[in-house]
Design a protein around this nucleic acid. Structure first.
Lengths: 153, 153
DNA sequence: GAAGGTTTGTTGAAACTTCAATCACTATGT
DNA sequence: ACATAGTGATTGAAGTTTCAACAAACCTTC
């Protein structure tokens, strides 16, 4: 059994700080969104992506990709959002297999409110506690991570 | 309704890069651990914390804290780990409410194997694709995030 | 020393995610 | 034109997490 390249003390500290911080932050953001607007982070992410798409609509597969969710998970979640009246589903013209998810007016209104609170919380617990240069570093680093993960997918 | 302080373009780019990268990385690590060793990230985290504790044992509440999990979740997860024979539960002497979770030899052996593979994957998709200075920045930043989150809990 | 409040850990049900199977449609090759 | 494979999306069941309620032990204070 070949010995792996273990992390040195500093790398381990940084990696663990990241794990702990990211879990705690995700937890907090989730509770915040849920308590104030009844949305999970996953649902919020879906609404955001739809709101930015042309015509506020996207095919399920694209939406799944933008929101970093599996298709199955997206199906279930969109079904729930449809029940709440925040999203509507319809067939898209060309490909009869395709399904479009579209943000309803009600969904857009809710999202506008949720986004305001959300950005405030993101600032309070993330942006405003981080040195601006460190934030840039985070952007670079996680861009690289995404690229690397994409290579094997 | 007062207008919130929205993120500027660069902040938004960095924040989104982080969200996407962290979700994709967590996903990948989870699948990796599960396929190679049958462990979820949450279970792995628990085994790691136990392995580092004196006597390889910890009270449930401490373990929950170290592993950034709710007590309820920990109860369920430890129950599953106990079924698999990786962890054992016993009462702790002083406080009769307390329960100790202890890593079994079998659990330790599995963890040793899992940790080797895990560190390799963490390197491949995180450590080794990030500039060392950026990694330090991540450590600083998420340390600050953890502190800030801890203030309100 | 008993009442009231807090902490610890578990439980069951509800909500959510994952996994494998499936269905409907499209694309390809012969 | 037909068979075959591939793609898009959904489904139900199994597994996991969250939530609220609970019981047992501890702590305080009168």
């Amino acid at each position: 059994m070949t010995e792996p390249r273990w992390l040195d003390a500093a790398q381990q500290r940084d990696w663990r700080a990241y794990i702990e911080g990211s879990v705690r932050l995700a937890d907090l953001l989730d509770r915040d969104l849920k308590s104030k607007h009844g949305l999970s982070t996953a649902e919020y992410e879906i609404l955001v992506r739809l709101s930015e798409a042309p015509g506020r609509r996207l095919r399920m597969a694209e939406l799944a990709d933008f929101a970093s969710q599996s298709r199955s998970r997206l199906s279930h979640t969109v079904a729930r959002l449809e029940c709440k009246g925040l999203v509507a589903r319809g067939t898209c013209g060309a490909d009869k297999r395709g399904v479009n998810a579209e943000l309803t007016d009600e969904g857009f209104t809710l999202l506008e409110k949720a986004a305001r609170d959300h950005v405030t919380t993101v600032r309070e617990f993330f942006i405003d506690v981080i040195d601006p240069d460190d934030l840039k570093a985070i952007g670079r680093a996680f861009g690289a991570v995404t690229e690397q993960v994409a290579k094997v997918r």
